[in-house]
Write a protein that binds this DNA or RNA. Sequence first.
DNA 1: TTAATTGATACTATATTAATATCAATTAAA
DNA 2: TTTAATTGATATTAATATAGTATCAATTAA
Lengths: 141, 141
Amino acid sequence: MKVLTKNTDYAIRALLALAAKKGRYLSAKSIATENDIPYQFLRRLLQEMIRHDLIVSKEGVQGGFMMEKDPDTISVTQLIEIFQGKVQVSECMFRKQICGNRARCVLRHEIMRIEQVVQSEFEKVTIGKLLRDLAGAALKP
Amino acid sequence: MKVLTKNTDYAIRALLALAAKKGRYLSAKSIATENDIPYQFLRRLLQEMIRHDLIVSKEGVQGGFMMEKDPDTISVTQLIEIFQGKVQVSECMFRKQICGNRARCVLRHEIMRIEQVVQSEFEKVTIGKLLRDLAGAALKP
DNA sequence: TTAATTGATACTATATTAATATCAATTAAA
DNA sequence: TTTAATTGATATTAATATAGTATCAATTAA
């Protein structure tokens, strides 16, 4: 069971790179090569993140992508929702034979609870936090 | 992001049916029709669960599948591991450029922590617990 | 002997994820 | 003003995972 797909994984790495150089434009090319992300794949992810107002871009020579926002306002939950769809434990709650006809879906309660836990845990993990962790880790050998 | 696949979802339903009639043999056919699970698909799931000693079977006429174990010893975590592989948040920790060369994977810490949370939450959800919840829910209208 | 069952396994279909490719539009700089 | 470096938009392909179906042999109660 894989919780984060490549999409999300790459997006996090790209955002870390942009957050580290906040306010400057970085080209997709440089982000791709420095973080070992397939170039064209990354471009699509960056464009998606622009559509969700996580980053901004400038076209043309010397153009690129830039982080304007506070990296603490970008959480892994948001990225999961963008690239993997809203966290949803199972389709159980929509299946009549357990949830409607019978008692009600007994999984439903547990599922909703765990869904909440997972979501709120990932909520705590922001790009800002990861960046600080990274800085901290870089100091220690 | 879908946490439980059909595999696991169906497996849980089948186990609930078997746990409700603990000690008796139920045919794959009856479990399938009563719980709206594709027959051949279910058979494969049941065989897989036998291989993992979650249930037992008897061949031939009047044969079927039976739960011998205490349903409280079967957790959703186990089922996820069987049908969806071990919970694993991302491959990040194996990627050199962040985790080896650089500071160490900063995601790693968060990832491990969340992995633990998710796993232990699902650990609490056993077939026994679900069955009791189901019984409880059946009473209330 | 037979019909109902599981065991084992092969096959197909569909969906999701991952990756690549192409061309137009923009823009800083030569 | 031309050009090369870039993003915007979108089409295409490849790989993998998930879901579902089919078949036939072995077993066993009736």
